[in-house]
Amino acid sequence: MRKGYLGIDIGSISTKGVVLDEQGEILTSSYIWTEGNPVEAVRNLLDILKKEVPSDVVIKGIGTTGSARKLIGLMVSASTIKNEITAHAAGTCHFYKDVRTILEIGGQDSKIILLDHGIIRDYAMNTLCAAGTGSFLSSQAKRLDLDVSEFGTLALSSNTPVKIAARCTVFAESDLVHKAQVGYAKKDIVAGLCKSVVLNYLNNVGKGKKIEGPIVFQGGVSKNEGVVKYFKEILKQDIIVDENSHLMGAIGIALLSKKNETDQVYTLDITDITFETKGFECKGCSNHCEVVKIFKDHEHIDTFGNRCPMGEK
């Protein structure tokens, strides 16, 4: 019998799951779209993983991370629930012990993590808007009638990327439309978009941060060769992109759940569990908290968003 640890990273766009063995090697992994429904996505994810996990593996820990970590943590009775930043750092340090900078661009947010001997020294996340993140790229790909996966290769074929205002998604989009109307080649526009993502990232998230090598680039956007190319060009340093760069958060949280290991054995079988959420505005006091009540098998198990016991009623 072998021990296994499940890590689930539920992002805004995609849901990632990975099962690690005791040495931290990947036994099986899966990457599916969240499609705005984290509960269903995790159900599907676990269905896929369940079939692929070797039969002698016993799950000794479940960790959840990503924006829906709390909700899904309750649903799968996770032992570890942690934010993306800690999870990404833990995952990356497992493969690259001496990493100094982690660049991460996901679907809705982007972050930079600076490390020193495996310790997070500083981090930053994008604040107000999702400019220069994966969802921006995929919506622009749709506008140009391209698949996101061909975006990177097309960008590489261009030598003269057009200049696109990188500061804000809305500006970038109108700039892009304008450039297309005046007749720039598609590949140059795509290359310009990739470059604008990099510039936006370095000007917003990376502002004032000292970016030192080794640099690891991860998150969904790291699969885009165009963006990687411009990071290399602008930072004038080598950028490492792991083949599992999109799974790093899930790997990290699986490793963290290993640290919290107890005697408890977990199951991947949640097909029969009903899981519902109900959102409302609590009128108990003047705070008017937006409260979400969680029901598992029709039983009220937890409440999010309330600042006082009033919201739990």
Partner: peptide, 28 residues
């Protein structure tokens, strides 16, 4: 930078990560 439409979840994530980071730095 708080606005009238700041996401509370985003704020909590950043605080949690900040706390983790301070803990890690302390330990090291």
């Amino acid at each position: 930078s708080f606005d009238t439409a700041t996401s509370e979840v985003g704020m909590k994530t950043r605080i949690e990560a900040f706390y983790d980071m301070m803990e890690m730095r302390r330990d090291s």
